[in-house]
Simulated assay, not measured.
Amino acid sequence: MTAEPLVVAVDDELPRVLHHMAEAHARRIPVVDDGSLAGKLALDDVVILLVGESAHVSAQLDNVAGVIRSASPQE
C-alpha cells in the first residue's frame, strides 16, 4: 500500500479531481470527509455521469430550439 495515498475531499470540484487523477495516472481515487474514507471515485463513474449530463443538455437544447423555431417568423 501507499503510505500517503492521493485522496480528494467530498466537496472538491470535479475538474480538480480529474486533474489530480490525470497527474497520478489514476483510474480510481479515495474520497475523504474530515479525514475519514467516504468512498471512492472511479473514472468509469465520471464518464457515465458526463454522458448522462450530455444527453440531458442535448435534450434541453432541442426543446429550446423548438421554441425558437415556433416563435420565429415563417418565410
Rank of each mutant, 00 (worst) to 15 (best):
D34K: 15
V47H: 02
D62C: 04
S58I: 00
D11M: 04
G35D: 04
I68F: 07
E53W: 12
I29D: 00
E75Y: 08
E23N: 04
M21N: 03
Q74C: 13
M21T: 05
G39K: 06
R28L: 00
E4S: 12
L49T: 07
R27M: 01
V46S: 08
D34W: 13
S54C: 11
G66F: 07
D45I: 02
H19F: 02
D34V: 15
K40W: 11
V67W: 13
V51N: 07
D11P: 00
R16E: 05
D11I: 06
A24G: 07
R16A: 08
A24W: 02
L41T: 04
A38V: 07
M1Y: 10
D12Q: 09
A65S: 12
G52Y: 04
V8M: 01
T2L: 08
V47N: 01
H19V: 02
I29K: 09
P73S: 12
V17L: 07
A26R: 08
A71S: 12
Q74T: 14
D45L: 00
H19G: 01
L43Q: 14
M21L: 03
Q60I: 11
R16V: 06
V51W: 09
S70T: 13
V7F: 08
G35E: 03
I29H: 01
N63S: 15
M1P: 12
V46Q: 03
V67Y: 14
L43F: 12
Q60L: 14
P73C: 10
R28Y: 02
R16T: 06
A65Y: 03
S70V: 06
P5G: 00
E13W: 04
H20P: 03
A9M: 10
L61W: 04
H19A: 02
S72Y: 07
L14P: 02
S70M: 13
L37M: 10
K40V: 15
E53T: 08
L14Q: 05
S36P: 03
R28S: 05
I68C: 08
E75S: 14
L14F: 05
L61I: 11
S58T: 09
A38W: 08
V31P: 00
A22L: 08
H25M: 11
D45Y: 06
L43S: 09
V46W: 02
K40N: 10
E13P: 05
V10Q: 03
S72E: 13
A24K: 06
H25T: 15
L50V: 08
I68V: 15
V64H: 05
R27F: 06
D62W: 00
I68E: 10
R69D: 11
L49F: 12
